[in-house]
Computed example of a mutant assay.
Amino acid sequence: MRVRVMRVVTRLNVGGPAMQVSTLLRGLDPDRYDQRLYAGHVAPGEADYHALHGLDLPVHRVPALGRAVRAGGDCRALAELAAHMRRFRPHIVHTHTAKAGTLGRLAALVSGVPVRVHTFHGHLLHGYFPPVKTWLVTGVERLLALGTHRLVAVGGHVRDDLLRAGVGRAGQYRVIMPGTTIGPLPPRADARRALGLPPDGPVIAYVGRVTAIKGPERLVDVARRVLAAHPGATFVVCGEGDRLTATRAAAADLGPAVRFVGWRADVSTVYAAADLVMLTSDNEGTPVCLIEAALAGVPAVATRVGAVSDVVADGRTGVLCRPDAAELAEATLALLDDAAARARMAAAALRLSAERFGPERLVADTDRLYSAIAHERGWWPAH
């Protein structure tokens, strides 16, 4: 028999969850799994991963399943998800991201779905909310974990943070790292020409959402410090978000040394143009932008938060710092002045990322998870 998997994600904005969901929909064996994807719409101003990269994938839209929390809309989304579950009759409901994890698991409980799985692509325990709201979010996750059969974390640090917060039991968790690929890399000169960048001089790229948790003000501060010592450098910001306008304003006096190129379907062009990739976040799961950079052979300078250290081997494939602009700028300048170190890190990043973060590994790990559940439940015969 084919195991029916209902996959629920809040929205398919550009980022790790959408990329992983798409990889699983394409990669899991259709003779073994009947998968369906349910998602809300992206918010105004957010880039749509489905439109950019996933038009081949069918998506069942749940209009009220958006990022914003509204009692009336959330109740409608819960009822709609439950109705979909009663029609599809999934063996497994697998939820991704926080809001979908809450509504999807509740709908699965009331609909009698046999198995509930949730993936933490990060968590909301640090840096997102004031203390009282964080306490409430943590309490909700603890309660939901009681009714969840498997909890998937995208990195060991994410799992450990959640366990320390009392979310779930160690035996419930499986660590499944992200898996992805990037398109062909154009020659550096072509990439820089396509982005309107100077042909010479170092380029530092930021790829991701421009939103508060990502530290865009810190990014501008780093750029200011680096440019004071390296005026020939250029920073490229590839992304959009609710802090984009404010970030542009903060960087206005830096002129063309900080370029905003929006979301690009050909993100490989950005990596091909770059000497370094930067991440300035206050909190992260396992950032796909750093995986993509490693697959492109680009070293990283990043904050040591969440599961970033599962991606960047400090001193081998990049440099990890505290969330401090001065420390990030110092590390950036040191690498810009040491071409040999950058070359060593680039080679190590290519080698390690190919081993750990290919899409085939993500699909194989998820297949093992579902297979174990199917054998436990008697859906498939025992080995």
Rank of each mutant, 00 (worst) to 15 (best):
V3Y: 04
T10W: 02
G16M: 07
P17S: 08
M19L: 12
L28V: 02
D31Y: 10
H41P: 11
E46T: 00
E46Q: 02
E46V: 00
A51L: 13
L52F: 09
L57C: 01
P58T: 03
V59K: 08
G66A: 08
V69C: 01
V69T: 06
R70M: 06
G72A: 04
G72M: 00
C75E: 13
E80L: 03
E80Q: 08
R87Y: 10
F88V: 14
R89K: 11
T95Q: 07
H96E: 13
K99E: 01
K99M: 00
K99A: 01
G104A: 05
R105T: 09
L109A: 15
G112K: 11
V113Q: 12
V115K: 09
V117S: 03
H123L: 03
H126D: 11
G127W: 03
G127T: 01
F129P: 11
P130T: 08
P131H: 04
T134R: 08
W135A: 15
V137Y: 12
V137I: 12
L144I: 13
A145V: 00
A145T: 02
L146S: 10
V152S: 05
G155T: 08
V158W: 04
L162Y: 10
V167G: 02
G168V: 04
R169K: 14
A170P: 08
G171N: 01
V175Q: 06
I176C: 05
P178C: 09
G179S: 10
T180M: 02
A191L: 12
A191K: 09
R192S: 01
R192Y: 00
R193M: 02
L195W: 12
D200C: 09
A205D: 06
Y206Q: 05
V207M: 09
R209E: 06
R209Y: 04
A212L: 14
R224F: 04
R224H: 03
R225N: 10
V226L: 06
V237K: 04
V237S: 04
V237R: 03
R243A: 09
T245Y: 03
T245N: 06
A246Q: 14
A250C: 08
L254T: 13
G255S: 09
P256T: 03
A273D: 05
L279Q: 11
T280E: 10
S281E: 04
N283I: 10
E284N: 11
G285E: 02
T286V: 12
V288Y: 12
A293W: 01
L295G: 04
A296C: 06
A296E: 01
G297H: 01
V298E: 01
V301Y: 05
T303V: 00
R304D: 15
V308I: 11
V308A: 11
D310G: 07
V312K: 00
R316G: 09
R316A: 15
G318T: 03
L320D: 06
R322K: 09
P323C: 06
E327K: 00
L328T: 02
L328S: 05
A334D: 14
L335Q: 11
L336V: 04
D337H: 15
D338Q: 14
R342P: 09
R342E: 07
R344F: 05
A349Y: 00
P359A: 08
R361T: 05
D365M: 03
R368P: 10
Y370S: 10
S371T: 14
H375M: 14
H383I: 07
